[in-house]
Design a binder for these strands. Structure first.
Length: 477
RNA sequence: CGGGGUGUAGCGCAGCUGGCAGCGCACCGCGUUUGGGACGCGGGGGUCGGCGGUUCAAGUCCGCCCACCCCGACCA
């Protein structure tokens, strides 16, 4: 049934992605321009992402809070670069309760300004610092062209906002959060990332310095998976976030902000997915294991379901789904759960019952390769090992793919060629003009300037002037 | 905002020179099936994007409007 198959991942990556999001029931198009509905399966995935991050945030002393969705327009105008960066994509409320508002309210595109206002009110003394607050919310940016999860008008994320006494502390916080994101991406989502500093033109509107983690998607394009910003004293000065230090002298705070959005779901799809559909990393999968019972006669059905019930009891420690749907063939169910990316499938049929076994089918290995028979006794241990193996294999495969498609061109001609279908690491003089020229020539942008740098220097890949840093260039989502 | 395109059932589409609004998938019912995407029979579902015009008669011809999609500038 060709119409049951996904569009080809290798021939039409974009259409493969769109169809997969819809057919795996992660999200659907909303009746509001540019907005999506995150469906239960997609939200379950997001909840698991939230749990992994929230735990890391709390372990480093952060607490959660909630701030209003509406922000007075004047707040945004207080930080010059910030308002310039965000004005084109603001949604603005001008009427409330049937009356025209005195001052328009902006639907938050991010919360630095209202945070700044409140922090100014709350922070008086060095004893009040640091303030370490995180928000789980949604924000709105009126994007021109939208795509499910990757770029929607409203998106769900977390935004952390901290205030510190010194530049050093703010910088340490910025780097700590970047590392937490990298740890999450690599060890939970199985997505290898490059940590680095954003160029001047790519940094957050109003930040002193921005950092990102960048991941390579299955079509070699780059995706910024999370950002962490050192806002310097910019927002503190705009909102007068000040404190008295131990010597009774008035100081400006240093603030940071950092965020990770539902966009990482897009990354997980595009890094791990294959022609069959999603492949979810076991640590995030809503269902880690699905059991498909197989039976013809009523007699077989009884025996099979009894075995399934015993397995279910043994596997209580896993996120388990038993597919008891009637009237669907096993083949249909296999394909269905493969589309949804369940990392491990357990098939239980009359043959398994007779032998006291269960058939394991690993999602990351194609067809028969991933299938083998396992004794029902002690199945929990076997499942745990198999899930660990899938988790590790996904990361390894993604890392190898990135390695194969990351190049170190020495000439500009070579550079132009490699960024057609891969990443380029190259010396860059740091000048905006070179960056812009490269974008014009190749559509590739600086993704970041990796933290891991070789010593020494070399000629800028574009202009040949001496450069001291290597940058990562790629076409990006 | 510039360039291109599309609107007919939930989705994908057909509908010619105007004459009873259809097909496939999906959905509902019954039965047979079930170790890699089952099948038979029966059934429900439409302001043909909107408004106006021409005509005995408009999904079809004409005019205006609206919405959505793709490509560029912008972007977590």
């Amino acid at each position: 049934m060709s119409e049951d198959r996904l569009p080809s991942r290798s021939d039409n990556f974009a259409e493969w992605y769109n169809q997969l999001v819809l057919r795996a029931e992660l999200a659907d198009y909303a009746p509001v321009r540019g907005c999506m509905v995150v469906m239960p399966y997609g939200w379950a995935l997001w909840e698991n992402i939230q749990a992994a991050l929230d735990q890391r945030f709390k372990a480093t002393g952060h607490v959660n809070a909630a701030f209003p969705m509406l922000i007075p327009m004047s707040f945004l105008e207080k930080e010059k670069e910030h308002v310039e960066g965000f004005s084109p994509e603001l949604a603005v409320v001008t009427i409330g309760g049937g009356e025209k508002l005195e001052e328009p309210l902006v639907v938050r595109p991010t919360s630095e300004t209202i945070i700044g206002h409140m922090y100014a009110k709350w922070i008086k003394s060095y004893r009040d610092l640091p303030v370490l607050i995180n928000l789980w919310n949604s924000v709105m940016r009126w994007e021109m062209r939208t795509r499910l999860f990757l770029r929607t008008a409203e998106f769900y994320w977390q935004e952390g906002h901290t205030a510190h006494a010194t530049a050093e502390e703010a910088q340490a916080e910025t780097m700590q959060m970047l590392d937490i994101y990298a740890d999450f991406a690599e060890n939970v989502a199985a997505v290898p990332v490059v940590r680095g500093r954003k160029s001047e033109s790519e940094k957050f509107a109003g930040a002193l310095r921005s950092y990102s983690i960048e991941a390579m998607m299955g079509d070699t394009r780059a995706l910024q998976a999370a950002t962490s910003h050192n806002l310097g004293e910019n927002f503190a000065r705009a909102f007068e976030i000040r404190y008295l230090d131990a010597a009774n002298s008035l100081q400006y705070c240093w603030t940071t902000s950092w965020g990770l959005s539902t966009r990482v779901i897009g990354a997980i799809i595009m890094v791990h997915g294959d022609e069959q559909g999603l492949i979810l990393p076991p640590r995030l999968a809503p269902h880690q294991v699905v059991i498909v019972p197989i039976h013809k006669t009523d007699q077989e059905k009884d025996a099979v379901l009894q075995a399934v019930a015993q397995l279910e009891a043994q596997l209580a420690g896993f996120r388990l789904k038993v597919d008891r749907r009637d009237g669907l063939t096993p083949g249909f169910k296999f394909n269905d759960w493969e589309m949804r990316g369940v990392p491990l499938r357990l098939e239980v049929g009359p043959k398994d019952v007779a032998q006291g076994t269960v058939t394991f089918a690993r999602r990351d290995l194609p067809g028969k390769q991933g299938k083998h028979s396992v004794p029902q006794e002690g199945v929990a241990r076997a499942v745990a090992e198999e899930l660990e193996a899938v988790q590790a294999a996904l990361f390894k495969r993604a890392l190898e793919f990135r390695r194969e498609h990351t190049h170190q061109p020495r000439t500009y001609a070579e550079f132009r060629q490699v960024v057609e279908a891969g990443w380029a690491e190259a010396w860059w003089c740091g000048r905006r003009e070179c960056e812009a020229a490269i974008k014009e020539d190749t559509r590739a942008t600086t993704r970041n300037i990796p933290l891991d740098q070789p010593s020494g220097g070399g000629p800028c890949i574009r202009c040949g002037e001496p450069a001291t840093e290597r940058a990562l260039f790629a076409r990006a989502y």
